[in-house]
């Protein structure tokens, strides 16, 4: 980028900007860099310098009933809410792309609204309606609440994927004798699957990181991982928190890698090169 004939001012500017960007990226990455080593600290304090290396905090969270319960709850609530969001969101996205009717823009806006409305409002509102129905302090209530928060991500990603989808392929399948259902499963689904999965990953991440609505709707019985972390940070912050955080960082790295692989596959299938 830097031309050999660049003036000294340009040179200074060039390096200053790279320096600044480096600092910003350090700022973005620093928290992750700091937390991971602390989770292997043998001391009881969450600060540097560290004592020795130890995996005692991992052992502690693995043996703690509270953290086990929280992990289990997260593993119940997030996948189920993601599944619900994926099914409903994909169907609706196909419908939205293939039809046109007055008020479609408004309907789309309503379906996307859970992404926009501040979560505290969503939490209080759901609490008011769910409480008399006995849905507060229940897994069902929490799952449908998380599903509705995640569904906009599925709708937007699948819609975006379908916009590049050639519906002539479905027609071709039909003309070759496929019924609509098998045309969907054999032609449409494999091609839009990356979109569905990345939408699902966003929905999963939303649910897996959700605290606010959970604070309002869940009883201690349904406390999820983030809810337990929230309590842990508030009450007594110990290296156990860092251990949980490290596990979550590993998980988000895996999700990121999956997403990137999907994006590459999608580009390869369509012959797009960046």
């Amino acid at each position: 980028m830097l031309q050999p004939y660049a003036s000294p001012v340009e040179r200074v500017w060039y390096y200053a900007m790279r320096g600044l960007v480096g600092l910003v990226l350090l700022f973005l990455f620093l928290p992750i860099l700091v937390v991971v080593p602390l989770s292997f600290n043998s001391d009881t304090f969450l600060m540097y310098p560290m004592g020795g290396f130890s995996t005692r905090w991992y052992a502690e969270i693995m043996n703690s009933a509270v953290w086990q319960k929280a992990m289990l709850n997260s593993l119940i609530v997030s996948p189920l809410s993601t599944l619900l969001a994926m099914i409903l969101g994909t169907l609706a996205a196909i419908g939205l792309v293939r039809t046109d009717f007055p008020g479609k823009a408004l309907l789309t806006a309503v379906l996307i609204s859970p992404m926009v409305v501040p979560v505290v409002i969503a939490g209080v509102a759901m609490y008011i309606v769910f409480a008399p129905l006995g849905l507060t302090g229940s897994y069902t209530g929490l799952i449908i609440a998380h599903a509705v928060l995640g569904v906009p991500f599925v709708v937007t990603t699948v819609t975006a994927t379908l916009q590049g989808f050639d519906f002539n392929l479905v027609r071709a399948a039909a003309s070759l004798g496929a019924n609509p259902v098998s045309a969907f499963f054999k032609v449409t689904l494999p091609l839009v699957l990356p979109g569905i999965i990345s939408g699902g990953l966003f929905a999963f991440a939303t649910s897996f990181d959700e605290v606010v609505v959970t604070l309002f709707l869940a009883s201690p019985e349904q406390a999820t991982l983030p809810r337990q972390m929230f309590a842990g940070i508030r009450e007594n912050i110990s290296p156990a928190i860092a251990a949980v955080a490290t596990i979550l960082i590993v998980l988000s790295t895996l999700m990121l890698i999956t997403l990137e692989a999907l994006r590459r596959r999608n580009e390869r299938i369509r012959g797009i090169r960046s």
Binding site: P226, M229, I233, I237
Partner: peptide
């Protein structure tokens, strides 16, 4: 992609 709570704890 990292949990908000993880980042709050880190800060």
């Amino acid at each position: 992609w990292t949990s908000v709570l993880v980042r709050v704890a880190a800060w």
